[in-house]
Write a protein that binds this DNA or RNA. Structure first.
Lengths: 233, 233
DNA sequence: AGTGGTTCAGTGGCCTAGCCAATAGGTCAA
DNA sequence: TTGACCTATTGGCTAGGCCACTGAACCACT
């Protein structure tokens, strides 16, 4: 039974998203500055050819993101964050920015590995070992060890005990996953990757932050080779 | 004339916010897990006593935050981020997590400095110098060089040429700023900080990534000392 | 002048009612 | 077993309307 794990659900465009995008464009295009007011909802509705309810939804979205603040009876005021596109969207939009993902991953995971080496408990080490075992078992069975790979990085992140770094990793996690799957798809890679993970685990166990960071750095860079090659193909 | 700066505009609660909050509570209270479906909009509307339009707005808000994903014809599916409060809020909530900010800043800025050393152009170097000059001038004039400090880090970040890392820095920027101001407030600190910035700039100019990262790391750690002490007071 | 009410037009907040479109799940014939 | 079809359920979006809030203009009073 062939897997189709690379397939993703079709894009279901929401009207409010499109409207929010158009409003954002309008903001940047017209040089609207922080503090300026958007046109009234009713006017936006007629101009963009949608209902006021949809405009309202778009404004909710923009408000949640922090691009505008809507004031009852006054209007929607543009904030200073308005021109800033959302992090993941910005990347996906250009798509050719895999190197940026690598850089970010390197920055975060190297630090995470170092912190993990300082703060790991026995429970964390056990969790990391379990992930490595799962990875090895899967590879022995002919798999690519993707699941164990994910578990490993999750365990290391947990050991680092930083909610902030953890959250940031989660933010780019979706993008990282793609590069990870690509990398492990290459023949011989899984075993090599397993060895790299072992080196990271050893450094963490040895409570050696610098070595852990270096090992993680090397691992991330090794993965990036493939990803970039694949990207350029 | 007594100031009333502690006064804030009255809370103008939005219905959709309240509804979103109730839905979130419902999720955590009922042990709803990732992948489970929320009740239909129509049912939520009658149960919470609001219109479907408002429910829809609340779901837009939750969707933007990433707590749910709404599928046409199917329902609103809870994601694994549902229980996770917003990144900045999470930190602010505990408030005692300054160390985490330092860790994150260190991870990002060290990498940014390294990348800047690799990719800086003459224009970037000029920008960095300008920031240092502004910092020095302000300090000579008795100031703390806060503005120049910000300009410096902004210039280095620009030189790193990574939209992703840049965005991440912006995300924690608000929090970093607080620690920065605290640090520079100590007597003697501004000049010392200026020297540290110069070392970073030199490494970047010399196109030495490792040295740049090390200098930035040292700088961030130096700042953290003060911040943590201040925090413990 | 300055202060405080009043009014009014503009604006967002929220609602009701309804149709359209997508989905999941069943039925039935090939 | 497969594929086509139907149907109930659900979200997407619209239209139209009432209410509450805001800000500016105006006015009366001090």
């Amino acid at each position: 039974m062939a897997r189709l794990e690379s397939l993703r659900p079709v894009q279901r465009p929401r009207l409010y998203e499109q409207v929010a995008g158009q409003i954002t464009e309008w903001i940047t295009a017209n040089g609207v500055r922080s503090g300026d007011r958007l046109p009234p909802e009713r006017e936006l509705a007629t101009q963009l050819g949608v209902s006021r309810a949809t405009i309202s939804q778009a404004l909710v979205a923009l408000e949640v993101v922090g691009a505008v603040v809507v004031r009852h009876g006054d209007g929607a005021i543009v904030t200073d964050l308005a021109g800033t596109p959302r992090i993941v969207d910005a990347i996906r939009a250009h798509a050719k920015r895999l190197p940026e993902i690598i850089d970010a991953r390197d920055a975060l995971e190297s630090k995470i590995a170092a912190l993990a080496a300082e703060r790991r408990t026995e429970a964390h080490l056990a969790e990391i070992d379990a992930a490595l075992d799962a990875m090895e078992a899967d590879i022995d069975a002919g798999g690519r060890g993707v699941e164990g790979d994910e578990l490993f990085h999750a365990a290391v992140t947990a050991a680092a005990a930083s909610e902030l770094l953890s959250k940031m990793m989660r933010e780019i996690g979706e993008l990282v996953l793609e590069t990870r799957i690509e990398s492990l798809g290459q023949p011989g890679r899984p075993r090599e990757s397993l060895a790299a993970h072992r080196r990271i685990a050893d450094a963490i166990r040895a409570a050696d932050p610098a070595a852990a960071a270096a090992a993680m750095h090397a691992h991330v860079m090794r993965v990036s080779d493939v990803a970039i090659l694949h990207d350029g193909a």
